[in-house]
Structures are given as structure tokens and as C-alpha cells.
Design a protein around this nucleic acid. Sequence first.
DNA 1: GATGAATGAGCATTCATTCAT
DNA 2: CATGAATGAATGCTCATTCAT
Lengths: 197, 197, 197, 197
Amino acid sequence: MKKRQSRSEERRHEILMAALSCFSEFGISGSTIDMIKERSGASVGSLYHHFGNKEKIAVALYTEGMNDHYARLKKALEETQSAELGVKSIVVTFINWIADNPEWARFVFYSRSQVAQIDKDEALKQGNREHWGMLKEWFSPLVKCGAVKQLPPECYSSIIVGPAQDYARRWLSGREITDIREYIDVFSDAAWLALKP
Amino acid sequence: MKKRQSRSEERRHEILMAALSCFSEFGISGSTIDMIKERSGASVGSLYHHFGNKEKIAVALYTEGMNDHYARLKKALEETQSAELGVKSIVVTFINWIADNPEWARFVFYSRSQVAQIDKDEALKQGNREHWGMLKEWFSPLVKCGAVKQLPPECYSSIIVGPAQDYARRWLSGREITDIREYIDVFSDAAWLALKP
Amino acid sequence: MKKRQSRSEERRHEILMAALSCFSEFGISGSTIDMIKERSGASVGSLYHHFGNKEKIAVALYTEGMNDHYARLKKALEETQSAELGVKSIVVTFINWIADNPEWARFVFYSRSQVAQIDKDEALKQGNREHWGMLKEWFSPLVKCGAVKQLPPECYSSIIVGPAQDYARRWLSGREITDIREYIDVFSDAAWLALKP
Amino acid sequence: MKKRQSRSEERRHEILMAALSCFSEFGISGSTIDMIKERSGASVGSLYHHFGNKEKIAVALYTEGMNDHYARLKKALEETQSAELGVKSIVVTFINWIADNPEWARFVFYSRSQVAQIDKDEALKQGNREHWGMLKEWFSPLVKCGAVKQLPPECYSSIIVGPAQDYARRWLSGREITDIREYIDVFSDAAWLALKP
DNA sequence: GATGAATGAGCATTCATTCAT
DNA sequence: CATGAATGAATGCTCATTCAT
């Protein structure tokens, strides 16, 4: 019984990984079903049986990737009280996730807009909302009590992860060679300097 | 005499603008020659007569867009001496360019990697090198004399424009509605706070 | 079981025959995929599924046609001992093949150079080599023992089939109306007269 | 006055030679106006001014090439009386013309059918008729008086030039390397052996 | 005569998706 | 569940030809 299930699960996972590798390398529209078929070893029919169409593979991939990141972040923040450590923790978690999942990160960075267009008001936004809700919940008390500089709410995330994200994009595309992890302190310091009261 | 020239130039420009509007809206691979044809009023043959193929239109567009931004930045920095004003000036110029040329900015943000892949070691890198050379020339004396915090060189640009870029991406994609110009101070202050000694 | 196979084989064959008819009538570059599609009843996608591209259809066709001719010739020569009968047999086989497969012959005559250019050092040359090897094996003993006039080796085939081929080209293109089979004796006699010691 | 004329004539000739080089290398339909433009140094408009369209360039080229060959042959036959020398002379002239004008020969061999299709009942056939008429006039008395073997009239030319033509095709396409002139005797002897009474 | 920008029908090819086996 | 042949709309691009300057 378990075997049957796992066979199917295996297939699904193989396809997902193959798709990630393609999407990360060529983007969604630059990847063809045939390429995913080739890299996964599954048949065309199997791809469609499991996911319905190419876009849905992308959405599944995106969701899974973001959920992982969200989960890491949630865990990190739950263990943190001080504003400084919290802000830095966001940067650190962000950078570590990227370094641990470069293909996923490349996919998320470069294909976000397409996935968003596909998903139009569905699961994606849901996850997103939860994520931002969680962040807000963590942040607003600190802002109120003056532990973090008061700024327009929609600017915080940009200031915190913007620098690391900019470097990550360059690094993931090969334009920078130094591993982003070497700059964890640089970018988390920068974030905190910009936000400390 | 001028007329002959300008007829041809006009066409070229019409095509370029039509392509920009398409690329900005649908990305390079999402835009079809037919769409550009329709929006420009030129014939297919004319498109190919002037640019050779779709990719070359993208490269021409990218180059022109970046050159404009580079030129603005150069001018801004030439008029600035103090480190603080200089750093803030970079952010301000960046934000103003984006707000003045949202289509161009969207295109540059979302299609950079594709254009880079097309252009492989050509004109693009050339312009890029000049740009970074100019920035370095402006920056290094300030770092040396302690007017700006000492950091790994490849991190400066990320720290300076990263936050604004992150917000710009969201704004340009419609996920944020507040005009980025309203946050010019927020982002330029953040940049300076992170870099001041 | 057989049905599945044959469905696919059938399609392949239909396409091949349709392509032959087109290529023979308009040449390779003069035939469009659409024409082949129309004549074969297959869809565009099916054409590409089975052959990859137009050129490969041509190569497949050429190979098949030549193999048939080679096979006939081999069989004919195996049944022959005398030099005279052998030489004449080559001409006879050549003419009969042409008359039995006029479309194939027209295609082979008129598109050989293009197919050769496509196939560049592949399967084609292989078949060719085998063919000439077989002919040589059959011929050289006869030359050595004086049963056939001694000539530069690369001239034999021209002398044997040249006349028939020249007539065949005219006949196949409609410039001659008398069926080439009526001249079987004329051309096989001519070949032998030119080669007998 | 002469200069003006010759400028124009020069252009015409440059175009013709460029077209010959293209047609000989890629065939008529494989050659584009742009290629001819490039090789000739003329502008597109100039090409059309002088020839009207691509096909007419081909016809002009074909006619000129054949006329040269016809003229040579006529001259050669006029100087010959004996049947044997005449037959051999045809082969010799044929081979020499090919060796002297390989591009022209390649063009004539490979593009004859296309040119014929273009020219439909025009100049081409006219020249052809004259040519065959001349040959007939020279030949029929010899056949009648028994100096040449009696054969179906439409077979003579095939028997005479067929072998040389077959070798020439292979040589011109690079499949044979030995210069065809080295086999002048082989092929003219073969022709005579096949035709002597 | 010369030039080259403009035109648009035509073409090969790709690719997501369906569906019978 | 798996397979892969079949489908056909969509797309980038070519190229002969025209014509205003």
C-alpha cells in the first residue's frame, strides 16, 4: 500500500525537481514540457496526469518554496525578542535560505511576477497574507514601543531585505562570485543601522 | 536632407517605443513580433530591416535605457561633493529615473537576465564597466578618507539602491500603490544611515 | 499489439510517400510542409513528431530509395557471371528501377546534391561506400582477367550508366516521351561496346 | 559616351557573375537577392532595374552559358568531316567547356529544370531548337551513309555525352577529384566505340 | 540609373495539450 | 497510472518585389 503511494509521490517529486531545475535556468516560459519530461524521466502524459498543465507545476513549486522560507522565518522570529536580533534574524534567515536553495531562490526571484499572474487571487495571495500578517504581528509592537524607527509600514521589508536581495540577484545570476553568506553580517548590520531608532 | 534621415529615425523610434511598451507589459518572450508590429504601425519587414530580430530590439532598448540612467547619475554625482549628499543623490536619481520611466524600469528589472544572456559579452558589459568605473572613481576616495564606512566594495551598490529597488519592483508590478517618490527620503536616509561611518 | 505498431508505421509511410510526390514534383526547397501535410493527411505536428524537420524527411526518403536500388543491383549481379551480361545487367537494373519508380528516380536525380549537403558525412556515405565496395568486388576480377577493358576505375560507372541516366533525366522531366524501357537494349549495348576488350 | 554605356554594362556583368557564383553554389531558389546584392556590390534597386526579377537573371545566365557552349560546338563541328572525329569532337568540346567554366556548368546541370520551368516556351527552347537542328544536320547524313551506327535519334546525344556528363556531375560536386580533362580520351573513345558501325 | 526603406505573403518550426491504448 | 502519437494554433523570420527620393 505504501509502496504504491510512494511510487506516485516519487514521480511527483521527480517532476517537481526537474521543473525547478528548468525554470531556474530558463524561466517558466523558456522551459518546455519536453525539457521537463527529459530531465524528470517521466512521460508527457504523466506530467499532465500529476499537474494538469505547466503553469500549475510552477505554482506548486513556488508555493512549496515560499512555504519553506516562511516556515524558517517564523521559527527564527519565534525564538527572538529583541528588535535588533529580530531584524538581523530576518536578513540572516533570508540569506541562508537563498544559499541553501539557490535554484529555488532564482526561480522565486525571476518568476514571481509570472506566477502571480497565473495564480490571480488564489493560494499564493493566501500564503502571502499569512506571512505578512505574521511579520506585522511581530513588528508593530516594536514600532509602537519605539524599539524600531517609525517608517511607512510598506517600507520595512524593502529596507530589511532589499540590500541582501540585490546582492543575491547578482550572485545567483553569476555576476558576483563571492558567496552571499560571507556578507551576512554586512547586510544584517546595514538593515539594523537603517532601522534602529 | 534632414527629412530623409528623420523618416528612418522616426520609424526606428516608433518601433522601439512599441517594443518597450510590450516588453514592459509581457516580458520579452511574452511579446510577439505581431504585437510590436501592431503597436508601432510598422510592417514585419520593417521591424526586421531595422533590428534584425526580436532580441536585438531588446538589446537596443536596454542599452538606451541604461545609458539614460547612467547619464543622469553621472551628472548628479558631478554636482556633489559631500559623501552624504552623494549617497543620497544616487538613491534620489535612481528613484526619479524609475518614476519618470516606469516602463523602462520595469523592462530593465524584469528582463535584465534575458538581455544579458542574449548580449553575451558585448555592448552591455561595456556600458556596465564604464558605469561601475565611474562610480568607483567617485566612491573610493571617500572610503579611503573615512567619509563612508569601509565595506566590501561589491556591497555598496546593494546597500545604497537595494531598498529602493525592492520597493520599486513591488510598485511597478502593482503590488504597492503609493508612489515611490513619496519615499525618496525614507530610502535615501536608510542608505546613508547604513553607510555613514 | 501489431495494430499499435502499424498505426504509427502507416503514418510514417503516408508522410514519406506524400513527401516523395512533392519533392519529385517541386524539389525539396520547392515543397512546403503544408503541401506534404495536405497530401499525407497528417498534421503538422505529426510530421515533426516522426521526422524532426523537412530535411530529415528528404534524407529518409533518399536512403530508402537508394537502398532499394542497391538491393536490386546486388541481386542482379549475384545471378550473373559473364562480364557482358553483368555490365548489361547493371544498365537493365538501372533502367528498370527508374521506370518502376519514376518519382523516386526524379527525386534522387534532382535532389542528390541537396541531400548530400544535408547529410554531411553520415548515413548516406555509409550506404554509398557499401554499394561501391560491392561493385568493385564484382568488377575488379573481370578487369584483371581481361574480360573488361582496362580503364581508370572512377570512369566505369559513368560509362555504364551515363547514357541511360542522361536519357532518363530528359524522360523524367518530360523532354522525351518515349519510355526509357524501349531503349534498354540500346543503352546496355552501348555500355558493353564501350567496355568490351 | 562610351564610358556611360560601359558603366552600365559593367554593373550588369558584375551582377551576372555574382548571380552565377551564387546559383552555382546554392541553386536558384537557394540564392537570395540579398546574397547577389552582397557579392555584386550593387543595390537591390539596381538588380531589379537591370533584370526585373531573380528568375530573369537566371534565364539570362543560362542563355549566355548555353550560347557559348553551342558556339564552341558549332565551330568544332564545322572543322570536322569524319564521323569518328566529329563524335569525339562533341565529347571533347563538352568536356573542355565544363573544365573552362565549372561554375557555369554546375549551374546549367543543376538548374536546368528550374530555368526550363521559368522560361516556358520562350528564348530557351528557341536556342535549343537551333542547337539540335544544327546537330541533326551534321549527323543525319553520316547515319544515312552508314558512317555511324543506326539508332533511335533521341539516343545519340545521351550515348555521346552521357558518360562525360555523369563524371562531370560528380567532379563538379566534389565527389571526384581527378580533373575531367584527364579523361577526355576515355570518354571520347567510349562514345565512338558505342557508335561506330 | 542608383539607393535602400517598406511591404506582407509565405514558411518552417515549436509547443502545450489531448486522448486512445 | 503510464505512454507517446496526434493535433493545430501560434510565432519568429525570410525574401522577392515595389517605389519614393
